[in-house]
Design a protein around this nucleic acid. Structure first.
Lengths: 200, 200
DNA sequence: ATTATCTATAGATCTATAGATAATGC
DNA sequence: ATTATCTATAGATCTATAGATAATGC
């Protein structure tokens, strides 16, 4: 039994990370506190030394959800990819069958949880707002370094279409319809919204 | 206490209609069977004479959810509206603040429930698939009577963007961001995807 | 002395069923 | 006789807390 400040911090992070996985996999109400602590290798009693309430855990888990875009941005920077190439990578990665089937593994929090977040308490929606603004900011930069209104609009439409498409692709049990949605939205976004290569 | 076949049918429909409202308002797990029956004016014990399980109720409630598009199509036909006008009415109606704030009142089932449906049992996702195909079919006809591949693609992109936009607009607690999403996606869809008026 | 974690449980759910009651419908 | 609805409850959750235990950290 570890009880140090360091081990407490490690426990806290492990609980949040496990919750971030499980919530995306099963929904915000899909795992109870006892089962979650068990997954981490602990028991239920210690939970409230870490969180004032279940809602606080949900908020922190949302803040900890990484949709994998940072990795794509970093890879693009490293490889010297152009904006259009990065845009394609973002769209294709988001609308991949692998992302559809594994929301828990660095899957987008809105694709996995948007409708439940919409009905959650203010604290949770505030955490989601931070993530949403961050994601729109990154995406806006893909369209235009100067972040013009047109770039912002393109980012908002792109992100809405991505979130809607993966949500619908998961909501149907018809595999061919699901694939049609993913492929069609990827192709259409690339045709209509792919940014122009830089001049010079 | 009514016990006739007719009154049973009326009860059944009332339970399904009430569930369709409550599920969109509070989520698929947001109301229990006892509370639902109470809302209808009955008690919990009769529920299982109507449904084999809770899941069966969820499926039937999804089938009963009407997103109000039929009314818009009928109004367009009556008023002799053109395809572009109907498209604008569909987009603006969907992305209206009123729709965002009242999912229970003829609100779109995917905008309200998509991420929860995606984690539901097959029976529920099958019911959702029927609604999705029907909606895509209607929307495709707005782009092209002959239902070309391009029209189908436009319908899928439009619907994905609508569902994503309203889901995100509800997920944030930042009113100005929420309004920005609704207005931006409406404007962008109309600019990029509004169908051409018929020639002749 | 403090506290991170443990075991155990109170109290509030929720789904589903059992058995009683009172109406329908042959 | 059948059955739609009722009251009541079994059994399985789930959140949160109480009190014990064993480690940290002054």
């Amino acid at each position: 039994m570890g009880h140090s400040q360091d081990s407490k911090r490690a426990t806290h992070e492990k609980v949040v990370a496990t919750a971030a996985r499980r919530f995306r996999e099963r929904g915000l109400g899909g795992i109870g506190i006892a089962d979650l602590m068990k997954d981490v290798g602990l028991t239920v009693g210690g939970f409230y030394k870490h969180f004032a309430s279940r809602g606080e855990l949900v908020s922190q888990a949302i803040e900890a959800m990484d949709n994998g875009w940072d990795a794509l941005f970093a890879a693009a920077a490293e490889r010297g990819q152009s904006k259009p190439q990065l845009f394609d990578a973002l769209v294709d990665g988001y609308l991949a069958t692998d992302h559809r089937d594994h929301p828990e593994a660095s899957g987008c929090l809105f694709g996995a949880l948007s409708t439940e977040i919409g009905r959650s308490e203010d604290e949770v929606r505030a955490a989601a707002t931070g993530k949403l603004q961050a994601m729109l900011g990154k995406l806006t930069a893909v369209f235009d370094d100067r972040r013009s209104p047109a770039a912002r609009a393109a980012a908002i439409l792109t992100y809405s279409a991505l979130v809607g498409a993966i949500s619908l692709a998961r909501a149907t049990n018809d595999e061919s319809l699901s694939q049609e949605i993913l492929a069609t939205v990827a192709k259409s976004l690339k045709r209509l919204l792919r940014p122009e290569p830089k001049h010079g």
